[in-house]
Write a protein that binds this DNA or RNA. Structure first.
Length: 278
DNA sequence: AGGAATTCCTGTAAGC
DNA sequence: TGCTTACAGGAATTCC
């Protein structure tokens, strides 16, 4: 599942292939992928002929500024990936969107489960979308411990759930939030409002290092290889994860077996020794 | 308004 | 072997 480090890896890889170039043609291959628009042809019509100015990112969203003050938005959802290839390359199964650039390689989105989407927004549409309600970016704009503590203190939801809430903080998903909580020594079901300023500070101080390591290793490619880098290589961070996907295996710090529990209908992995219960 | 449940979707794996 | 079922989960939506 692509999270901030995976999306940032994609952003860095496609940036030089898009910026300054023009969209020669574009196609939505699955209507659900353009579900933010009334007509899926809106995406195609708005993109064609536009020049790319800047390839940016907010949380897990790729935000690509193009001519005409439009923002080309791509989200990879659960199973999406971006592929750079030549226009004549055989079309992979589950290709949901493609854009031919002039000059340069084409961009394709492959997304079996169609949780991802592509949109092209005017400034007004962007402002009215849920993107406008995203929290601060966890990598570029991480709030202070004091700010996080204040924002948490009235909340009863488990800290794991809050870290997944993109309106609170944008970029962490199920893998990286588990890794942050393990490094910080905080149990995932702890009530957000019950954490001390010192504990919030520990969480805060682990966010950027975990994301940095994920980015430097090209992100996490799971065994299903749903996420790959735009050149087709797999990310290498999986084997360095401390808790995610390691149920029953020894904690790298204390050798206790890693446990799995379900919080808000998703798996959470934690060390019962390093992360004391509520 | 916050928090929890539900929905979307398909490849994979487990179970009978 | 072949079918059915469970599972994975990001974000939007709905309900309480």
């Amino acid at each position: 599942m692509p999270e901030l480090p995976e999306v940032e890896t994609v952003r860095r890889a496609i940036r030089s292939e898009l910026e300054g170039r023009r969209v020669a043609s574009a196609r939505i291959c699955h209507p659900r992928t353009a579900r933010r628009h009334a007509r899926h042809t809106d995406v195609e019509d708005r993109l064609v002929g536009r020049r790319v100015n800047r390839v940016g990112r907010l949380g897990k969203f790729l935000l690509i500024g193009v001519d005409g003050d439009l923002t080309w938005v791509m989200h990879l959802g659960m199973s999406g990936r971006i592929s750079l290839c030549e226009p004549g390359d055989p079309m992979e199964i589950h290709t949901r969107f493609w854009a031919e650039m002039e000059p340069g390689p084409s961009l394709r989105m492959i997304d079996p489960r169609t949780f991802g989407f592509v949109a092209v927004f005017t400034p007004e549409e962007l402002d009215g979308s849920t993107l406008a309600r995203l929290g601060a970016d966890a990598w570029e704009d991480l709030p202070s411990a004091g700010w996080l503590f204040e924002a948490m203190r009235s909340r009863t939801t488990p800290i794991k759930s809050l870290l997944l809430d993109q309106r609170f903080l944008a970029g962490l998903g199920n893998i990286y939030s588990d890794e942050v909580l393990h490094r910080a020594g905080i149990h995932p079901t702890r009530r957000s409002g019950g954490l001390s300023l010192e504990e919030v500070g520990r969480i805060r101080s682990e966010v950027r290092p975990v994301l940095a390591e994920g980015i430097s290793r090209g992100g996490v490619s799971l065994d299903d290889l749903a996420y790959l880098l735009p050149d087709g290589r797999a990310g290498g961070f999986l084997e360095y994860l401390a808790v995610y996907g390691r149920e029953g295996l020894a904690c790298r710090s204390c050798q206790s077996p890693i446990r799995r529990m379900v919080i808000n209908a998703r798996s959470s992995f934690f060390c019962p020794e390093c992360q004391a219960g509520p």
